[in-house]
Simulated scan of single mutants.
Amino acid sequence: MSGTEAHKRLQPKMGRGSWRFGMWAYGLQASISAFLAGSRLMAGLNDGWNVVGFCIYVVWFLLSAGQVIYLMRVRRNDAPFWDADETRRADFDRRGRRL
């Protein structure tokens, strides 16, 4: 059994491109929610404190950060499978061009 077959993929339907899109989307969400939570915190110090709005932004940030961490784990676990798929496609293209 080779090294890539020793463990299962975390996300069998996710490729390198969909991983990049997910990382970009959830990274953007995490940064926006962190900015909004920080601005709500600073506005709360100057004006009245809105606890519900702040908590919503913090929960949104935690969910987005958790998804980014999960996607980093998926990348670490599934990268050998993605490399094997790319190698298989390149070999297929190379053999197809010789015909």
Rank of each mutant, 00 (worst) to 15 (best):
G15F: 00
G17F: 11
G17C: 09
W19Y: 07
F21V: 08
G22P: 03
A25V: 09
Y26C: 09
G27I: 04
G27M: 03
G27A: 03
L28D: 15
Q29A: 15
Q29N: 10
A30R: 08
S31T: 13
S31E: 13
S31K: 13
S33A: 15
S33R: 09
F35Y: 14
F35L: 14
L36F: 13
G38V: 02
G38W: 00
S39W: 11
S39Q: 15
S39A: 11
L41P: 00
M42D: 08
M42K: 05
A43K: 14
A43S: 13
G44L: 04
G44Q: 01
L45S: 06
L45E: 06
L45R: 06
L45W: 10
N46P: 04
N46D: 12
G48Q: 12
W49Q: 12
W49E: 10
N50Y: 06
N50K: 07
V51R: 13
V51L: 11
V52I: 12
G53H: 02
G53I: 02
C55Q: 09
C55A: 13
Y57D: 07
V58A: 06
V58Y: 02
V58H: 01
V58C: 05
V58P: 00
V59L: 12
V59H: 05
V59R: 08
W60L: 12
F61G: 03
F61K: 03
S64T: 00
S64D: 00
A65Y: 04
Q67G: 00
V68I: 03
